[in-house]
């Protein structure tokens, strides 16, 4: 066990993957000399050279499009998109090529590409720097989508994502980059799995990314008031691993799904739909959601209102209990 920040855990995960396989490349804007605007790739260019850590031209479609070509050639590119709201110029290449080349070629051309995207709000940033676009990727067949919430997962999930022969969109909770935690010596769980991070008997809360910490804090606050909240970190958003959620809901009868993203047609909608399909007779209350609003991400002076926080999570828990 080593204690490090989430950003450092990603850095050491990338380093380990690059040491293990010379075909692993890191590419993106400012990822080389600068080490990325969040310093996630700090030191990699120095140690692996600029043919493995590419300071690319400023074009997201270029980053994804050339990564697809490099993957056809046999490389395993790890792309960094600098901020969530900047991924859309590359969305065409992600949806039209990255997600479909394997299917189109009937497995002859795998696409072992990872696209790292810092996501979510809470850092007081200008427009396009605080978004949660994960549902736009979870909807696309051919992609896998994961979100880490803590340093241990950050380190091991990035390594597992790089080792995967499928394209993985890898969401990193940017406001948690500087938070410390322990990193295990061996991988703690398979990549595409959810995990119960706090056991409880009264209400189930399912969440991912930056809000796992918020939900754990809410659960601690609820405990002081006598409510026993189970918290599940979904970790994999596509495919969803809902087995642990189903068994939890069969015990608690109540589910609150929490996310920063707008609720409409989202990962939280999918969780709600599938829980009502699988746990209909166990539910004591409707599946509730505590999410960002169906608005564009607001100016940062409004973000405390936009983002689900401890109180809004507790409010959701109370509504589920009081149904």
């Amino acid at each position: 066990m080593t204690t490090m920040t989430l950003a450092k855990a990603l850095n050491s995960g990338l380093r380990a993957a690059m040491e293990l396989d010379p075909k692993v490349l890191v590419m993106g804007e400012d990822v080389g000399k600068l080490g990325g605007v969040f310093r996630v790739t700090d030191g990699l260019a120095k140690d692996f050279g600029e043919q493995r850590v590419l300071d690319t031209p400023l074009s997201e479609s270029g980053i994804i499009g050339t990564a697809v070509g490099l993957a056809i050639r046999g490389f395993r590119p790890v792309c960094e998109i600098q901020f969530d709201g900047f991924v859309f110029p590359g969305y065409d290449q992600i949806v039209s090529q990255l997600a479909k080349v394997r299917f189109r070629s009937q497995g002859r051309v795998p696409m072992p590409v990872v696209v790292r995207i810092p996501f979510g709000g809470g850092i007081g940033a200008v427009e396009h720097h605080s978004e949660s676009p994960e549902s736009l990727f979870a909807h696309v067949a051919g992609l896998k989508v994961v979100a880490c919430s803590n340093p241990d997962d950050a380190h091991w999930m990035i390594r597992q994502a790089i080792a995967s022969d499928d394209p993985v969109i890898f969401f990193e909770p940017k406001r948690r980059y500087w938070e410390k935690g322990e990193v295990s010596e061996t991988e703690p769980a398979p990549l595409f799995s959810s995990r119960v991070v706090r056991s409880g008997a009264d209400v189930t809360v399912a969440c991912y990314g930056p809000l796992v910490k918020t939900c754990l804090e809410a659960a601690a606050a609820a405990e002081a008031e006598g409510t026993d909240v189970e918290v599940i970190d979904l970790r994999s958003l596509s495919p969803l691993d809902l087995g642990p959620v189903f068994s939890s809901v069969r015990r608690t009868g109540r589910l609150v799904v929490v996310s920063e993203a707008p609720s409409e047609a989202s990962v939280t909608s999918e969780v709600a739909a599938r829980v009502q399909e699988e746990c209909f007779h166990s539910l004591e209350a409707p599946v509730l959601r505590v999410t960002g609003f169906d608005t564009p991400y607001p100016p940062s002076k409004c973000e405390d209102d936009y983002l689900p926080d401890l109180d809004r999570v507790l409010d959701g828990v109370d509504r589920a209990l009081g149904w």
Partner: peptide, 22 residues
């Protein structure tokens, strides 16, 4: 394989060529 979305393949080809060079 044939690329139907107009122009996508120019970046894929460039990436492949970068790989040849690397």
């Amino acid at each position: 394989l044939y690329t139907i979305v107009i122009g996508n393949q120019c970046l894929n080809a460039t990436g492949y060529a970068m790989g040849q060079k690397f």
